[in-house]
Design a protein around this nucleic acid. Sequence first.
DNA 1: GCTCCCCGCTTGCAGGAGCAAGCAGGCGGG
DNA 2: CCCGCCTGCTTGCTCCTGCAAGCGGGGAGC
Lengths: 158, 158
Amino acid sequence: MQNPSEIVSQVRDSVTHAAASAAAEATTVSTVVSSQVGDFIRTQRNAAQVSLRELARSAGVSNPYLSQVERGLRKPSAEILAQIARGLKISAETLYEQAGILDRRSGTPDTVTAIRSDPALSERHKAVLLDLYESLADSTASPPTPQHAPLSTKEEHP
Amino acid sequence: MQNPSEIVSQVRDSVTHAAASAAAEATTVSTVVSSQVGDFIRTQRNAAQVSLRELARSAGVSNPYLSQVERGLRKPSAEILAQIARGLKISAETLYEQAGILDRRSGTPDTVTAIRSDPALSERHKAVLLDLYESLADSTASPPTPQHAPLSTKEEHP
DNA sequence: GCTCCCCGCTTGCAGGAGCAAGCAGGCGGG
DNA sequence: CCCGCCTGCTTGCTCCTGCAAGCGGGGAGC
């Protein structure tokens, strides 16, 4: 049997927890969840002319599950996400970003500068890469990532 | 009622699946990983002189669960990982890396990172550029991609 | 001595991830 | 015509994540 006072102690603990989780909810974007990832995956898959089952196979996941993921009925774990990324030949970071579990690599990377200053490339090769980059980047308009910032750095005290 | 032939068709599908998952299991490191993250988290927490309950509160997770995570009994999701990272004031990438759901970008030159995170490029184009980069870059200068690879490249047909 | 408060850990349960199995429909060839 | 093979979707199950509640213990104040 416990003393009433001890019980009170436990209760206070719980209350503190409740308050904390409430606060956490206030600061966390969370719930929106985003079928974003699913749409993105499906888009990428279609762009690559790959069937659902094919991708499922190469990614090592079951085809029904992939189907559900693409339609936003299921929220895939990071591991599954990484495997799908591998199957799609894209970077896991991109998918994590889409899933809202990673911030955008802030600070525009400036690929051109990186290529120009890359010691592993000869000048000729730099030219080739830059030329290709120019043709691929296209850059019509510039809608570069709206920055909704899902789980980004927050202020501790406002 | 179904025709036997159709059933056979279904069966073939299942068999293919079984083979695929077997292959996946063969090439995936999988289960070993986990406790790494827990140790890392606990180390970081102790280094910061923070109690378990405190971190749990600031990270927005329950204290018992954090306890289990630190001792490797539970495998936290990426979301939880990101929250813990926030509570510890460290980057989510670091924790993902420890959890084995993100490859180390250590050896990779800046150009690769720049391309990967370039908003002006589609994922397809990134793949193209990275592929070309790989073939152009001087291999003597940098030993690229260590590839310990928990979720790394896999053969299509063994 | 005894309370009070903190520490970390254990337990039982709700809910969701992920898969095996099965289903409906479209298309080419015997 | 209908058989085989593809496409994607739905269902029922198992396993595990994540939390609320409770436990035992150690140090400070009375």
